[in-house]
Design a protein around this nucleic acid. Structure first.
Lengths: 229, 229
DNA sequence: AATATTTTTATGTATAGACATAATCGAGTC
DNA sequence: GACTCGATTATGTCTATACATAAAAATATT
């Protein structure tokens, strides 16, 4: 077959790696590259666009394409779906509902979701186990108006996380990672001393219309989030 | 102008959000969509491919395109370049070299980089300041064979991080986030009590040929990493 | 010299048409 | 039923061409 855009992609990456195209330098324009490499401009465009999306190149109309000063500025993170993360390691997955109450959100969390004090929310706390060992402790508030049907749902089989993923239209959100010392609650359920440094994740989720849920998850001691670059 | 791929992208996202195209369901093929929406198949392809890259759709040859069961499974993380992160918040950026010695890597870190015990490495510790306040504490090993010129470099003006980014061909690596209690060294330099829960990042970097560097960075208390979904 | 206007140019994108490729489906076979 | 194998089909990609658009560079105007 003819030259594929992957060929061009590979060739360009090699030129970047070899510093033939040095960081900050302007590279030849698409038309010239197409002529040099023996393919159409569209193919070159496809390859260079992919490299730009991954942060290797910076492109601007008329100004041309240059190698990024700090290459590889973006990484993809697979959003953890707890069940999959656990089962991918060949461990058994289980969860147990610790508590579920209709409870107003604290002002701080409420502000993050942009909800008024009148919004009705439910607090659900769940412990996740991998091979019977504590894996993560989830503290979740669900905005009932944003998740119709949630209140009526038993959470024995399906955990809150999975129910929401499958039943609410998801649009956007934020996810923060931070370190947090274990409080009495986390210490008891994760089986570690109070004050242990734990990795925590805070996630706010919005449907196209309104806020849906805010979660704070504490992971068991030693947990890591890995990104491949 | 004619219909753009962004139009199709938006239209498709709306159909997903409205559950007109429900999770798991098969959507019409490209040719049909092109006919329905009044554009060429290439335009539809561009839009659907973008949605697939962001995790909204799953595409397979012959099998067709379906809405992902757990939509939005990937997030982009902007890899922190400390100087940029600090300056983006309008704060002044400074760094101070705490120590620099030729020192063998501990076996654990060495194994991560796949280096033999003979590899010559330098250990560099740097404190980063934002508006004069401690921001992050970096503990770095540099494999001198993988970073030619590093040993001769003064690190007063340019910090190790920036020098390496600009002078070594970068290819791939891993990045882990974890929680770690402050030891005496971190406590002293970050100005917090020993045992404080700190967010830490471990990063291994490889050039096309060999391992380049391993870094462990402890961030000041309260630090967060944010991902936009 | 500062400012406004035009020209130029590299990337961005749409199109029709063609072929490649993977995977499913169904027909025929054992 | 289990299997092989070819037909079918949806996505993947390349091509050539055309025009759009942003922004830099050059030019004209004040």
């Amino acid at each position: 077959m003819a030259i594929t855009w992957q060929d061009i992609h590979k060739e360009a990456l090699e030129r970047i790696h070899s510093r033939d195209w040095a960081p900050g330098a302007l590279i030849p324009n698409e038309a010239d590259l197409a002529a040099e490499l023996g393919c159409s401009r569209a193919t070159v465009n496809r390859a260079l666009r992919a490299l730009a999306e991954d942060g290797w190149l910076e492109r601007r109309r008329k100004a041309g394409t240059r190698v990024a000063m700090a290459p590889q500025r973006r990484a993809r993170l697979a959003i953890p779906i707890l069940r999959e993360a656990v089962e991918a390691r060949g461990q058994s997955f289980a969860h147990s509902l610790l508590s579920r109450e209709t409870e107003a959100m604290p002002p701080l969390e409420r502000a993050l979701l942009g909800l008024s004090a009148e919004a009705v929310t439910q607090r659900v706390r769940t412990l996740f186990l991998a091979d019977g060992q504590p894996y993560a402790l989830e503290d979740r508030w669900v905005h009932l108006d944003g998740a119709p049907g949630f209140a009526a749902q038993e959470l024995k089989e399906v955990c809150a996380n999975e129910w929401l993923v499958q039943h609410t239209p998801f649009a956007r959100g934020t996810m923060d990672y931070l370190a947090s010392p274990a409080g009495p609650f986390e210490a008891r359920h994760l089986g570690c001393p109070e004050g242990t440094a734990l990795l925590a994740m805070e996630r706010a989720t919005f449907s196209p219309d309104t806020a849906v849920t805010f979660v704070r998850t504490h992971f068991a001691p030693g947990h890591r989030v890995r990104l491949e670059l």
